[in-house]
Amino acid sequence: MTVQQTDQKQKHYFGAGPSPLPQPVLEALGRDAVELTTVGLSVLEISHRSKAYEQIQETAKQRLRRLLNIPDTHEVLFLQGGASLQFAMVPMNFLPEGRTAGYILTGQWSEKAYDEAVRVGAARVAATGKPHEWRQLPVLPENVVSADDAYIHITSNETIVGSQWKTFPHLSAPLVADMSSDILSRPIPVDQFHLIYAGAQKNLGPAGVTVVIVRKDWVEEASPNVPKILQYGVHLKNDSKYNTPPVFAVHAVERVLAWVETEGGVPAMAKRAEEKAKLLYDAIDESDGFYEGVVRKEDRSLMNVTFRLANRDLEPTFLAAANDAGLKGLSGHRSVGGFRASLYNAVTVESCAALAELMRAFRKRHS
């Protein structure tokens, strides 16, 4: 594939998060940071109790409902603290004494969720891919759900190693998912989950706000014996405004959701994700071992493409070549090494084509 020379202003950024935002969204946010024309104030200045903010939040909520086909059984919350706070909030609310919670471990982020849960209650490892160094998803045993399980937790996409659940298990226990790094990139069966949480800084917007989608009837079962600020019920009752919400971050999420709608919605994002990932995985798989994928093929992520060079000594040279070509943010996580190209929604097909072309050219020079 021949890639035409891109405009000098074209950004090729593959960082794992915070991720790029769509250019039209950045331009709109720049204007709104100066003055939100409907109120004559910067969006950074308006009150979270104002009608202007209420409209922003409600519009964001309704856009997300449409895009993900969220049923009426579930509520949308805009919280703070990132996914890391959700690691603790979930067990604090839903892991009572005398019950267990099963955690399916697929990488470092699911491990972090589990580590927080064991501080709260009787969390257990229901399945793990650690014996395979996270390079493949675990096969779920028949007894993956214990009779005492209050819920089962999974991480839909592991950004560090680059694995992803293509389908989700149907289980007899409530299913909870951290979808921080692939929400809005593909259709999801929301009604299959009791709770979904996602830090915004991959596909939804900037850091500073976390989206939670939770079954309303499950919230009614949550423990009341935790601080109010950590109770889902309190946030639901107060429409995500129990404490001052991150106004600008929620506004940015609303603008990103509007952009996704204009681009064709989640099905269009899913098609684009497959196209982008295929460009890079093809460059890896056709390289006769020059490049090595980290994760087995059937478990590869469409959001985070991870790879190494067979000749590790060439990796610094490759990274320098990428940087010289304007391809930024490709260093792999320190625990994995090598390279990671994160392909969140705002990353363009053109950027992925440019990286694939560089990979082929570099291989040709150094084979």
Score class of each variant (00 low, 15 high):
Thr2Ala: 04
Val3Glu: 11
Gln10Gly: 00
Pro20His: 07
Ala28Val: 02
Leu29Met: 14
Arg31Lys: 14
Leu44Ala: 07
Arg63Val: 04
Arg66Cys: 00
Ile70Glu: 01
Leu77Ser: 03
Met92Ser: 07
Gly98Gln: 05
Ala101Ile: 08
Tyr103Asn: 03
Thr106Cys: 15
Trp109Gln: 09
Lys112Ile: 01
Tyr114Leu: 14
Asp115Phe: 05
Val118Thr: 14
Gly121Met: 05
Ala122Met: 07
Ala122Val: 01
Ala126Pro: 00
Val139His: 15
Glu142Val: 08
His153Cys: 04
Thr155Pro: 10
Glu158Trp: 01
Thr159Gln: 13
Gln164His: 08
Lys166Asp: 12
Thr167Tyr: 04
Ser172Asn: 06
Ala173Val: 01
Ile183Met: 14
Ile183Val: 09
Pro187Phe: 05
Asp191His: 08
Ala200Trp: 15
Gln201Asn: 15
Pro206Met: 05
Pro206Glu: 14
Val214Ser: 11
Asp217Thr: 13
Pro227Asn: 12
Leu230Met: 14
His235Arg: 05
Leu236Ala: 04
Asp239Pro: 00
Phe248Asp: 06
Val253Met: 12
Arg255Val: 01
Ala258Cys: 09
Trp259Val: 02
Trp259Gly: 02
Glu261Met: 03
Gly264Tyr: 11
Val266Trp: 15
Asp285Tyr: 15
Ser287Tyr: 13
Phe290Arg: 05
Asp299Ala: 06
Arg300Ala: 04
Thr306Tyr: 15
Gly326His: 05
Gly329Leu: 07
Gly329Trp: 11
Gly337Pro: 14
Ala356Asn: 11
Ala361Ser: 06
